[in-house]
Amino acid sequence: MPDVLIYSSNFCGFCRRAKALLEQKGVAYREICVDGDPQSRQEMMARSGRHTVPQIWVGETHVGGCDDLFAAEFGGELDVLLQAEASAE
Score class of each variant (00 low, 15 high):
residue 10 N to A: 14
residue 7 Y to H: 09
residue 25 K to V: 05
residue 83 Q to S: 10
residue 12 C to H: 07
residue 14 F to W: 14
residue 72 A to R: 05
residue 21 L to V: 05
residue 80 V to G: 00
residue 84 A to E: 15
residue 41 R to F: 11
residue 39 Q to M: 09
residue 73 E to I: 03
residue 63 V to I: 15
residue 55 Q to T: 09
residue 18 A to N: 11
residue 48 S to W: 00
residue 41 R to H: 14
residue 26 G to T: 02
residue 15 C to A: 08
residue 5 L to T: 15
residue 77 E to P: 01
residue 72 A to M: 15
residue 50 R to M: 12
residue 88 A to M: 12
residue 58 V to L: 01
residue 57 W to A: 04
residue 75 G to T: 03
residue 64 G to C: 06
residue 75 G to V: 05
residue 36 G to E: 03
residue 68 D to L: 07
residue 49 G to Q: 06
residue 30 R to I: 08
residue 46 A to H: 14
residue 12 C to Y: 08
residue 89 E to I: 10
residue 51 H to M: 13
residue 24 Q to N: 12
residue 25 K to F: 01
residue 27 V to K: 07
residue 65 G to E: 01
residue 51 H to E: 12
residue 59 G to D: 12
residue 60 E to M: 11
residue 43 E to F: 12
residue 65 G to F: 00
residue 87 S to K: 12
residue 21 L to C: 07
residue 5 L to K: 13
residue 15 C to Q: 07
residue 76 G to D: 04
residue 22 L to Y: 03
residue 10 N to V: 11
residue 76 G to Y: 00
residue 17 R to Q: 14
residue 60 E to Y: 05
residue 15 C to T: 06
residue 26 G to V: 04
residue 19 K to N: 05
residue 72 A to I: 04
residue 51 H to F: 10
residue 44 M to N: 04
residue 17 R to G: 01
residue 79 D to N: 08
residue 28 A to V: 10
residue 13 G to T: 07
residue 24 Q to K: 14
residue 67 D to Q: 13
residue 69 L to D: 07
residue 58 V to S: 00
residue 12 C to K: 03
residue 89 E to R: 15
residue 60 E to Q: 14
residue 59 G to F: 04
residue 58 V to W: 00
residue 53 V to Y: 00
residue 75 G to K: 00
residue 9 S to I: 04
residue 5 L to G: 09
residue 4 V to Y: 11
residue 28 A to Y: 05
residue 19 K to P: 04
residue 65 G to H: 00
residue 81 L to G: 02
residue 60 E to T: 13
residue 52 T to K: 01
residue 11 F to K: 04
residue 46 A to Q: 15
residue 39 Q to R: 14
residue 70 F to D: 01
residue 77 E to Y: 05
residue 74 F to G: 11
residue 63 V to A: 08
residue 39 Q to Y: 09
residue 82 L to N: 10
residue 85 E to V: 14
residue 20 A to L: 10
residue 69 L to A: 05
residue 72 A to F: 13
residue 50 R to W: 03
residue 23 E to H: 13
residue 57 W to H: 06
residue 65 G to W: 00
residue 49 G to Y: 02
residue 50 R to T: 03
residue 69 L to G: 06
residue 79 D to P: 03
residue 84 A to W: 09
residue 88 A to T: 11
residue 38 P to C: 05
residue 37 D to K: 12
residue 69 L to I: 10
residue 35 D to G: 06
residue 20 A to K: 11
residue 20 A to M: 09
residue 80 V to S: 01
residue 84 A to R: 15
residue 16 R to I: 12
residue 63 V to R: 00
residue 88 A to P: 10
residue 41 R to D: 07
